[in-house]
Simulated scan of single mutants.
Amino acid sequence: MGALTDDPALREMTFVVIDFEGTTPTRRPPQPIEVAALALTYGATGGWEQVWAYESLMKPPPFAPLTTADTHQTGITAAMLADAPSAADAMAALDAHLAQGPYLLVAHHASIEGNMIYHRQEDCPVLAATDLLDTIPLAKHLLPELENYQLDTLLRHYGVTRPLDRHRAMADVRVTADVFGCLINEADSAERLRTLRALTTVARRRAKANEPVQQDLF
């Protein structure tokens, strides 16, 4: 343990690692076809503890059908989505898990997850109002020598096994959680970031639902 993981604010926080897989319709925002989330706290005895996990496939809307390229990327097939719940139902079920805070979401390239959530905010208002931590700027701050900050590069750097089902939501959540844990250990050992506030200064991404709305000028 170090200064960061001894910070009471970090100990009280629940970190929800989240990932989406989706389709990319022309001239429309990406549409989710799978979501996974893993809620973690840093335990009193040292080390990460799982609080809850959630994953669900989602049936895409007619304007954003699953493509061959989507299946090649994710392994998700049309048959797997045939009986999947709607995005509205799946996201509402995920939102119901966020009953007690405080929470921060954690994602790799968090703007992607943030946009997915923002466009479904009516179905998941608590989730949509939860800020994110992005592992990319955190890694850039702690590991300035890396050639790039793709998730696979960070997996290799930390010796985390690349899962066979990489690009399925829960597989990506679990390895992102591993990388996040490694980055927290890095910050702890080097005492580069000593508090949760310092961590969020480096890596926080405001939830789009929390951003001020620009009013029309008259």
Rank of each mutant, 00 (worst) to 15 (best):
M1R: 14
G2Q: 07
L4W: 03
L4E: 02
D6V: 01
D7F: 03
D7S: 03
A9Q: 13
L10F: 13
L10R: 03
E12Q: 14
M13W: 04
V17Q: 00
I18W: 10
E21M: 08
P29E: 11
P30R: 06
Q31D: 12
I33D: 02
V35C: 05
V35P: 04
A36H: 04
A37H: 09
Y42D: 06
Y42G: 05
T45A: 15
G46P: 01
G46C: 03
G47M: 06
W48A: 10
Q50R: 15
Y54L: 00
S56N: 11
L57M: 11
M58V: 09
K59R: 15
F63N: 09
A64K: 02
A64E: 03
P65A: 01
L66D: 04
T67H: 03
T67G: 04
T67P: 01
T68H: 11
T68K: 13
A69M: 11
D70R: 04
T71S: 09
Q73P: 00
T74H: 13
I76N: 07
T77Q: 09
A78I: 06
A78T: 13
A79R: 14
M80L: 11
P85F: 02
A88C: 06
A88M: 09
A90Q: 02
A90Y: 03
A92T: 14
A93G: 11
L94E: 04
D95N: 12
D95S: 00
A96C: 03
A96G: 05
H97L: 01
L98W: 00
L104R: 15
L105Y: 02
V106F: 07
A107R: 00
A110L: 01
I112K: 11
I112Y: 15
E113F: 10
I117A: 06
Y118E: 07
Y118V: 04
H119W: 14
E122S: 14
E122A: 15
D123P: 07
D123Q: 15
C124N: 10
L127W: 09
A128M: 06
A128F: 04
A129M: 13
T130W: 08
D131T: 07
L132S: 13
I136T: 13
K140V: 02
K140P: 00
H141N: 12
L143D: 00
E147Y: 02
E147L: 08
N148V: 01
L151Q: 14
T153I: 06
R156Q: 14
H157S: 07
H157W: 12
G159N: 05
G159T: 08
R168N: 10
M170D: 10
A171H: 08
A171S: 15
A171Q: 07
V173A: 07
V173L: 04
A177L: 08
D178G: 05
V179Y: 00
G181F: 12
C182M: 15
L183M: 08
E186C: 15
A187L: 10
A187R: 11
D188N: 14
T195D: 10
R197P: 00
L199S: 06
L199W: 09
T201M: 11
V202M: 02
A203G: 03
K208M: 13
E211I: 09
E211K: 12
P212N: 03
V213T: 13
D216W: 14
L217K: 12
